[in-house]
Nucleic acid binder design. Structure first.
Length: 740
RNA sequence: GGACGGUUAGCUCAAUUGGCAGAGCAUCUCGCUUACAUCGAGGAGGUUGUAGGUUCAAGUCCUACACCGUCCACCA
């Protein structure tokens, strides 16, 4: 057999992946049928964080896929009943706004020009193409996912799950409809949740002024135009300057508009900031709305969905907020009411997806209540007793605090608790068209919750759709067939581990915990493995705008998927950002070549004599002392690596494997064996070859989860005894385990 | 304002329970020896950010500070 001197990843990778797919072993049912796994084996399951169908995979995805594939292949080889379930996410806002942008650019049309039905057709078409690209890329990365169980967050089955979960939470009183201040994105014309808002530092002007000359308290604001909606002035109740005014009502004329202002005392007001008095605008500020709730203040909306002033019959009507601000400041100056203007640095809230400046507005929306007391009808959660009063916040906290879920590394648990502490009710309705339509139906003043209306006619469905994270939060169990009581659900839920970047710990992980505990009465997973973010060689975040993002697929094409995977995992301790450079990837390509050639060498030492060969591949050669030592040392190392993987120290395991293979196996064991093979007695020669064969084949197994393609390819041409004729991916892991 | 992480060789990072500071890349010298020059042998390179403390022993634990990075909150 003639094997090329250099390893060519491109030649082998495609071929190897189809061999895996054809074998059916990605599906645990096949592993059981073919007796690779016992039906009573412990389960190991992962759901793939579904990539958004907005385009292509980036290095972050490649990292997550690498980590999950290592864990999956490792457990499969350890004979667990192993399922890794793939899928994609419809990513409501992200996808729709992407298609809308293309529409505007290419056809100069808005979504309203097309209408709901036509727009959805376009978005779905885009999503489908994007899906196919992504699936191809996942395969390219070597992911041993079970394609037969593939899911999509917006398919029919997931829609049933969404509607069912919505109704369950509604019946528990945890989903409600109400008028609240929400983050309105005037550009995207939709609400967004708190964590879809990003804050950008910018310079602003803080104006200090009186509403009018007869009003005794000066106020300060960066947004004078919102003062048209003021209904109160709040001061700290202990403030000596203003104490006497508390409880008084004033009628003022502010910039030509009549306002009714009540002075209230509220300890949220900081006496030392500005004038120590806060003009309260309940309709356009979160803090002010809360103050208004506490004092029963009137709410007056003066800004509309287009970020324009909306006061009928006033000179400001239909004016953009910036223009109104300018006009009001001029008026105040003219009337000598403006005391001072200072330049301050402030944070501007913007919508993450559209870059639109967020306008807080009061709107009727659907919310998930996180602080409301309720009790579980069916909880099997060890940390919540049946019928005990609890809140979603408490459940989310306890799941982690009482160690039913471990976040790796631990320090993220603290961040998680902190986030939950600050949590407000989750606004789940969106005024976009792409997504799960809210299963609420209206007839006059009646509301009905369900997939279908109670009667065919007269009921109208809510036009809004759900936040994309609503369907994502059901992912660990909606993918397993819930709400049906499927065997998969029973076998694979709770899942074992969820791997994701820390950037979506809150968006996603926290909400999965919320939803799964409430709907299923189970935790969604036992471990959360936090991956770091990928940075370039200068430590900068990879982004399209910087132009420094590496396309993982292109890298895989040039250096081989195995090299890419190794460079993504080495140096990547959980939660730590990883720098990746072409140098690093090149080094791993060299490693692949080293494996290839060491294997070639071992292959070349195998005797032609059938009897001897048979002895070697079935490990029946009597070993000389030094070879016994070497095999013993190997086992010690194998145990060590196994332990690291079990502790989720994949980066250490990868490094140790790399080091042992190159600097112990290749540099020492192979070099020393040459002497025994060339000059030694028959006994020494066979013992040395046996040792090379043994250590190489066992190492291929250990390398397989990390570098699946090259190891599978070598496995295919190395002579093996009868019971090892299958694919390497279903071989036994070298170190025994006792779980079965 | 609050919290978290980092600071170790020129660069990128390890160092598990406190126990002789270690790899890769780069660099220098030598070697194309029938697995591999995508390689091998060897060398140089360090007061572990600063100041103090605990300890027989500190990169590791404690205190303070500096710088870099990130997240959360948001003062109107």
């Amino acid at each position: 057999m003639n094997i090329s001197k250099h390893y060519d990843p491109k030649e082998t990778e495609k071929d190897v992946y189809s061999r895996w797919e054809e074998s059916g072993f990605f599906n645990p049912d096949t592993c059981i049928k073919e007796k690779k796994t016992s039906p009573s084996a412990s389960p190991f399951s992962i759901v793939l964080p579904p990539p958004n169908v907005t385009g292509v995979l980036h290095t972050g995805h490649a990292m997550v896929i690498t980590v999950e594939d290592i864990l999956t292949r490792f457990h499969r080889m350890k004979r667990y009943r192993t399922l890794w379930l793939p899928g994609t996410d419809h990513a409501a806002i992200a996808t729709q706004s992407k298609v809308e942008k293309m529409l505007l650019k290419e056809e100069k049309k808005s979504r309203h020009d097309l209408g709901r039905e036509e727009l959805l057709k376009r978005v779905n078409k885009f999503a489908e193409e994007s899906h196919d690209t992504i699936v191809g890329q996942i395969k390219k990365l070597g992911a041993s996912v079970d394609w037969e169980r593939e899911a999509y967050t917006l398919d029919k089955k997931r829609n049933v799950a969404v509607n069912t979960a919505f109704k369950m939470l509604y019946d528990l009183g945890l989903i409600y409809q109400g008028i609240r201040i929400i983050n309105w994105d005037p550009k995207g014309q939709t609400t967004v949740s708190d964590d879809e808002v990003v804050h950008e530092e910018a310079e602003g002007t803080l104006y200090t002024f009186y509403y009018e000359k007869d009003f005794p308290i000066p106020i300060a604001t960066t947004r004078p135009e919102t003062k048209l909606g003021d209904t109160a002035v709040a001061v700290n109740p202990t403030d000596k300057r203003y104490k006497k005014y508390i409880g008084q009502d004033f009628s003022v004329n502010f910039a030509g508009q009549p306002l009714k202002i009540k002075v209230v005392g509220d300890k949220a007001v900081d006496s030392n900031f500005g004038t120590g008095a806060l003009g309260v605008t309940p309709a356009h500020s979160f803090t002010d709305w809360e103050i208004a709730q506490r004092h029963g203040l009137e709410m007056k909306q003066v800004i509309n969905e287009y970020a324009k002033i909306n006061i009928p019959n006033s000179q400001f009507s239909n004016m953009k907020v910036e223009e109104a601000r300018k006009l009001i400041v001029e008026k105040l100056e003219r009337e000598k009411l403006l005391i001072k203007r200072e330049t301050v640095s402030q944070n501007i809230a913007k919508a993450e997806r559209t870059d639109g400046i967020i306008e807080p507005l009061p709107k009727l929306q659907w919310f998930v209540a996180v602080n409301k007391e309720f009790s579980f009808p069916h909880s099997s959660l060890p940390f919540v007793k049946k019928n005990e009063k609890t809140t979603l916040k408490k459940v989310m906290t306890l799941a982690v605090k009482e160690k039913h879920i471990s976040i790796i590394p631990r320090r993220f648990e603290k961040i998680y608790f902190h986030w939950i502490n600050n949590l407000r009710d989750w606004c789940i309705s969106r005024q976009i068209w792409f997504g799960h339509r809210i299963p609420a139906w209206y007839k006059n003043n009646e509301v009905f919750i369900g997939e279908e209306p109670p009667e065919k006619t007269k009921w109208e469905q809510d036009p809004d759709t759900l936040d994309t994270w609503f369907s994502s939060s059901l992912w660990t169990f909606s993918t397993l067939g819930w709400p049906e009581k499927t065997p998969d659900l029973k076998n694979y839920h709770p899942t074992t581990v969820l791997n994701t970047g820390y950037d979506i710990l809150f968006f996603w992980v926290a909400r999965m915990i919320l939803m799964t505990t409430t709907v299923l009465g189970e935790i969604p997973f036992r471990y959360v493995y936090i991956s770091g973010l990928i940075r370039d060689e200068k430590g900068r975040k990879m982004s399209k705008s910087l132009g420094n993002s590496l396309d993982p697929i292109e890298i895989a094409d040039r250096y081989g998927t195995d090299a890419l995977r190794m460079s993504l995992i080495i140096g990547a301790a959980p939660g730590n950002d990883v720098r990746i450079s072409e140098e690093k990837i090149k080094a791993q390509k060299h490693f692949a070549n080293k494996i290839w050639n060491a294997s070639r060498f071992v292959f070349s030492t195998l005797p032609e004599n059938k009897e001897d060969l048979e002895k070697i591949i079935s490990h029946k050669v009597a070993l000389v002392k030094k070879d016994k030592e070497k095999q013993k040392d190997f086992l010690k190392y194998a145990k060590d690596v196994t332990k690291e993987i079990e502790k989720f120290h994949l980066y250490l395991a990868a490094e140790k494997i790399y080091h042992y293979f190159w600097h112990t196996f290749a540099d020492v064991i192979i070099e020393e064996s040459k002497k025994s093979i060339n000059e030694g007695s028959d006994e020494e020669r066979l013992s040395a070859i046996q040792t090379l064969y043994y250590i190489l084949t066992e190492q291929l197994k250990m390398l397989h989860p990390f570098m699946p393609f090259i190891t599978e390819e070598i496995w295919s041409f190395i002579p093996k005894s009868k019971k090892h004729e299958d694919l390497l991916m279903v071989e036994n892991w070298p170190v025994d385990n006792k779980h079965n």
